[in-house]
Design a protein around this nucleic acid. Sequence first.
DNA 1: TGCAATTAGTTAATTAATTGACAAATAAAT
DNA 2: ATTTATTTGTCAATTAATTAACTAATTGCA
Lengths: 208, 208
Amino acid sequence: MSNNRISMAVIRRLPKYHRYLRELLDKGINRISSKELSEIIGFTASQIRQDLNNFGGFGQQGYGYNVEDLYNEIGLILGLTNTYSTVIVGAGNLGQALANYNFGTHGFKLEGMFDVNPKLIGLKIRDIEIKDMDLLQGEIKNKNIDIAYICTSKDAAQEVADRLVKCGVKAIWNFAPIDLKIEDENIIVENVHLIDSLLTLSYFLKDQ
Amino acid sequence: MSNNRISMAVIRRLPKYHRYLRELLDKGINRISSKELSEIIGFTASQIRQDLNNFGGFGQQGYGYNVEDLYNEIGLILGLTNTYSTVIVGAGNLGQALANYNFGTHGFKLEGMFDVNPKLIGLKIRDIEIKDMDLLQGEIKNKNIDIAYICTSKDAAQEVADRLVKCGVKAIWNFAPIDLKIEDENIIVENVHLIDSLLTLSYFLKDQ
DNA sequence: TGCAATTAGTTAATTAATTGACAAATAAAT
DNA sequence: ATTTATTTGTCAATTAATTAACTAATTGCA
């Protein structure tokens, strides 16, 4: 099942399936065909069937898919049955925003926040106290942190990443506008490059 | 030049070229070959040449590319010589974070912030006062706003989008975890679905 | 000046991703 | 119970994206 030949294109569609299936569940819909799903999600029915079949035959001919089962299966594929411990590094506006997002409901438990700014240190966001960056390594090892969200400035990000990797973080969710250089290929790095997104918008706007 | 047969894959690489060229410029490097660029940016040299050639022949055989010229050309392609007026709708943590990002330096001038929360209304972020959401339509028309950043909750996002479109906004940068339904095909919608990004990270983490 | 090295632009080949088509299984209707 | 509708899983066809190969231009050095 956890076949690593699955293409990135497919993987990046999985959260969207998960999102739409959650909505269907909430509406009390318990059965859906690839054709119906295609109409609400905007992928072709063929693509939906192809995508899902990468992970197993979750449907039934003549019936379609059971919404709850499929939702759970995709949750499983995405690893949402696991619980991960996380920290936020850089507790400025963005870091605080992420703290308030409460990804904990999806299994990402926030265990700490760190910053260098004395004005922020000591502040509490949702019961999490912002601590001095000097305490980063110790706490990460202590609390066995899996994922770090980097919300520092561009200039601080690489150094922070190096420290994180050194103390055994498994994944980095990077919001700094830089491509981190990480030697260890086993460390997962997922970037959210806001400026890239905005410039893409700008590209399309220009032609209007 | 503004050929709209350019593939999305190419377009989404443009901001990354722009970012790396800026870095080269800052380092005082004024000449680069596709091969050298490929080594720092991580695309193949062939892909770099293909990508750039979608927009014109910016290089010179035997020489490579002039960094400053190429940087400017890509800036032009991305529409960064234009100035756009923007507003933030939803002035919670994320909205405030975006206000502080200061995208104004890239030509995206923040002209207003709006929220329904009385505790936020009146507050000033970087000289921009958060105003009552009721004033949204009027100000958008008044100030001829081009782009709105939607930073509201999932539940409020669609209604906000409808109102924005009605008063002539040209593009929406959407941070709410929902796919907005916009009738008018000319309206640009660029999504930043944080949860999708985090779930993708989770997918890869699960297999480790 | 002439020659080897470099390098873009471009075409061709390859690989990847998406869409289409259809058999087999199931559900629903009569 | 039989027939007709659906609808998946899968394979084939198509389209898109990436990589490789090559030509011609330019550079830089002897």
